[in-house]
Structures are given as structure tokens and as C-alpha cells.
Design a binder for these strands. Structure first.
Lengths: 237, 237
DNA sequence: CGGACGGTTGAGTCGTGTCAATGACCGTGG
DNA sequence: CCACGGTCATTGACACGACTCAACCGTCCG
């Protein structure tokens, strides 16, 4: 498929990195990049491993985790469509990447991207911008973990999913039903929120009884009224 | 003072950004940069303000905070000598920067650095590298806040100060006494650790009774035995 | 249909926050 | 130089929230 076509219909085409890449005259995306399709629950980047590639997520959600000595692991970030993957830094990282859902990634070989970064300031600027916005996001999340109780944490996370994956973010606006699928299991929600599964479950129940959300099955979520969620996350207790 | 002299004796000269800057032939640091001297407790970057400058910390500690609606604020990061300040990103940030101690910063005008970044891939690479290592540090700290109890958190922070500010990091190795000064008050320690002042105080007492540390006055700290601190932070409970 | 897994619900404990009082440090002014 | 006051730090008693342990339930597979 010619790269013009592939990118034009790509959900990630609006991202900082992709905007720059598609504008670069000497980059033939169709020839250099490759769409990786990965099922859920697969490890993309192991601890202290370099990737060998650099990619932009086209669809799906990737969780970034750090493993603890006791065997448990904590989720320290989530990557959505448009975000890039694959550390461009030389230093090996303690952060691992694992697919939370089925994922499609548009991948370039690491060496190819490294060359581009050295030659093209606009690209490194785009990558820098995203790294800084990731950093900002991580710091804002630290505040949630620090100042907020269990209910507020759950509300903040569900609200985030609603905003990034909910019907408003979807391509087909015709979709009348505002039901969408959570990319994480209860256990993963707990790992991200630094809570136990039981507490997460209880707080979801509370939000349900408040009339803010509706839960269908294990992963289905409907936001009936965003206002209580916003109120909870805005005014940290 | 000629820039060669100033940089040669600068404590920050080993940092990624400075290494690149001093190697750039067209940069006359002495002409473009300016050493800012700021007393403790001064706001460097307010909320949603752009800085107008870009700088590398020469001495002192800067705390990065995010303000909450309830008036309280949380510390989300600390910047030490060698780290850069001043967001190069276009987006205004919710993160504020405030001096924790007396601070010296080697500052460049924002416009000057922006031009350099657009022209010089090595510099943007250096900035990108530090942004990514800041990101990694923020994520590792999230794990501390998430998985660790009060004692472990305090131990982790004191150990970090010991490593970055302690006698081993000092220029004059002749200094026999391993006493050093904490850059943060108890209240600030609490804000960084997401604990209360009282809890911080109690845990410091515990560490003292373990024989790991000795506290002199309000800010003096002596690490008598790093081992218990390392053990506490390594094996998160 | 039945097992297995993930999720929900309940009772009890422990840790940290809260509130309140005391104590130590460090400026200021006499 | 010392007395004083304010701020910061320490210590104690108590309450509340989240974790732990344990049982149950629903859903999704074979």
C-alpha cells in the first residue's frame, strides 16, 4: 500500500511525530515502516532490553510497568494511539512495555530513526515534545496517587479512559450507544492506582450507586454522567 | 570571565547538555549565558508561565511542584546541579519551579536556545536524553509512592539526598565529617513523600533508633550506616 | 454442563491521618 | 550577651480508611 494512503486513514496521523514524519521528503514510510500486529498481554519491551525498533501506536493500549523485587509490578503509564514507543535514549530502562489490548504499531528500525534524529531537528523536537508531555502526565498522576483517596483515584482513571477511548473520541460519531470497553482488567486498574482489587471493585460500585457510570460485563463501561467524576477529580479531598 | 574558565571549574560541566554546549564552536557561553543567583524559597517558574530563559543548575536544589485546588501543593520532582530548567516545550505546564535552597543557574535566553535546538541535533538529543531520564526517574518515584510504606519512603528519600549531596558527592574529599545539609524542610519532605509532617518525623526517629542515621539540628544529617536504608528501599514491603 | 478464572462482597486489623500539646531552634530586640 | 517570640519539629491519643483474609458469585471457556 502506498504510504500516502496508509497514513491518510491512520488514527495516529495527527500525532506530533507522525505529522513531522509524513512531511519529511526523504522518508518513504511505506518502505521503511512496518505495521506490527500484537495480541493482548504480550511483552513488547523487557526490563533493560533495548527494542531495536521505534514505533507509533496505531490502535490499542500499551501499559508501561516497573517490576518490584517482590514479584509484583506497578503500572507507571499508559500509551494510547499516536504515542510513540521504543526508547530513543541510550540508557537501558527499568520500564517494561506490555500490550494491554490487541495493538497495532507502525514500526521503524531503530538505526533508521537514530539517523533521522541526528539529521532532522524537527523530528527530534517532536520526540522531545512528546517526552515532555509524558513527563508532565506522569507528574500529574503522581499528584493523584499522592493526594487522592480510593474513590477519587478510580474516578480519575475512568474519566481518563472515557476521554481517550469513549464515544466522543471515536471515529464513527453515529454510534448512538456510549458503551465502550475498558482496556484494563480490575487487577490492572489496581496496579495502576496503587490499590487492591477489592478496593477498586468497591469504589466502582460506589460510582455506580451515585449514578455516574454503568458497568456491563467485565470490561464494558458507560458514563451516564461525567459531572460527578469531574467533581471528584477536580477537588482533591 | 572567559567562558573556558567558567565552565572548567563549574560543578555542572559533566552534564549532558553542558558537554554539548561547550563543544559547540559557535557558542560563546560567556557572552550568551548569565549566572543567575537566587535565594531559597523563590518562585522560578509560575503556573502556566513560560520562562523566557533556559538554564542549567550550577549549585543548589530546585523543587518542582503542582498546586492543588485546596491550596496545598505537592512536590513532583527535584532538580540538582547539572539538570536543566525551563521548559523547551511550547505547551504551558502546570508544574511550577521553586528554589529549595540558594541556587545558581547558568541561563540562556529562550530564543537563543530555541535557535540552537533547531540547528543542532546533538543539543536537542542531549535535552531529549535528559527529558527521558527525568521521565524514568518520575516513574520510579511513582513506584515508591505506590508500593512503599512510610518508613521505606523516608529511607528512599534520605538515601537519594545522601547520594547526590552527601560527602561522597562533594569536591573536597578531605572533609572528614560526613555531615551534610538537607535541602528540604520537614514539611517539604512530607509534600514530596505524600505523607504528613508528623509521620515523616516519626519515621526519621525510627531510622535514628535503628542506628542508620543521625540528625543534628533541623537540617543536618549524617548517614552512619547506609545498609539499612538500601535494604528498606530495595525490598519494597 | 461444569470447571476455572476474575470479580464481588463481608468482617477484622493495621497504618497513617487528624487533632492537640509540648519542645527545640533561630531570628529579633532589649 | 541574654531574653523573647515565632516558626518549625517532635511526641502522644484517637479515628478512619484501605489492606488482609475469606467466602461467594458471575462470566466465560471447554
Amino acid at each position: 500500500m502506498p504510504e500516502a494512503h496508509r497514513c491518510q486513514s491512520c488514527p495516529a496521523r495527527g500525532s506530533r511525530v507522525c505529522r513531522v514524519l509524513t512531511l519529511m521528503p526523504d522518508v518513504a514510510i511505506g518502505r521503511e515502516s512496518m505495521i506490527k500486529r500484537v495480541p493482548a498481554g504480550r511483552m513488547l519491551v523487557g526490563q533493560h532490553n533495548r527494542t531495536g525498533w521505534f514505533g507509533v501506536i496505531v490502535s490499542g493500549v500499551v501499559k508501561l510497568t516497573i517490576g518490584c523485587e517482590d514479584g509484583r509490578q506497578q503500572i507507571v503509564g499508559l500509551q494510547f494511539p499516536g504515542d510513540y514507543m521504543g526508547c530513543t535514549g541510550a540508557a537501558p530502562s527499568a520500564v517494561m512495555a506490555e500490550t494491554a489490548t490487541k495493538v497495532e504499531i507502525c514500526c521503524f528500525p531503530q538505526t533508521y530513526i537514530e539517523g533521522l534524529l541526528g539529521r532532522n531537528p524537527a523530528l527530534s523536537r517532536a520526540v522531545l515534545d512528546q517526552a515532555q508531555s509524558d513527563l508532565e502526565a506522569a507528574r500529574r498522576w503522581m499528584v493523584v496517587l499522592g493526594h487522592c483517596g480510593a474513590l477519587e483515584r478510580v474516578a480519575a482513571l475512568l474519566l481518563m479512559f472515557f476521554r481517550r477511548l469513549g464515544p466522543s473520541a471515536r471515529q464513527h460519531a453515529v454510534e448512538a450507544d456510549d458503551l465502550f470497553e475498558l482496556p484494563l482488567s480490575r487487577g490492572e486498574l489496581a496496579e495502576y492506582l496503587s490499590l487492591t482489587i477489592e478496593t477498586v471493585s468497591r469504589q466502582i460500585k460506589v460510582l455506580k450507586e451515585m449514578g455516574a457510570i454503568d458497568v456491563v460485563g467485565r470490561r464494558g463501561l458507560r458514563v451516564l454522567d461525567p459531572a460527578p467524576l469531574v467533581r471528584l477529580t477536580g477537588a482533591e479531598a
